[in-house]
């Protein structure tokens, strides 16, 4: 998580605090914040995209209008997607990130 590379000096960065690499927060991983992870159950999914439009972290991958799964580097595990999923058999399940809990279940 975060950056481990040596930080640049004042001669090597743009002036005024400008950030010129738009959207580079994607290089910053917040997946480690999770205590629970959403797991996609593909066969239940009706690709309504309700989960996608509700995710605060842009962590649900959509291609050609179809869900592809989760971006676990940026999903914080809030569980909103699971609550919004309207599929008859839920297509998103929240599971504990704790390894032992996973064995229990």
């Amino acid at each position: 998580m975060g950056d481990s590379v040596k930080k640049p000096g004042w001669k090597d960065i743009p002036i005024g605090g400008r950030i010129e690499d738009a959207g580079n927060s994607q290089k910053y991983y917040v997946g480690g914040w999770r205590t629970r992870r959403p797991v996609w159950i593909k066969e239940n999914c009706i690709h309504c995209l309700f989960c996608w439009v509700a995710c605060p972290d842009a962590a649900i991958v959509v291609e050609d209008g179809k869900i592809q799964g989760f971006d676990y580097d940026h999903c914080k595990g809030c569980g909103i997607c699971a609550r919004e999923c309207p599929a008859k058999s839920p297509a998103i399940q929240m599971r504990s990130e704790n390894i032992e809990d996973q064995f229990d279940s």
């Binding site: 930080k7 640049p8 000096g9 004042w10 960065i13 002036i15 005024g16 605090g17």
Partner: peptide, 10 residues
Amino acid sequence: DYLFEHKRQQ
């Protein structure tokens, strides 16, 4: 980690 560098530029 960065404000000081930006001030140095100033």
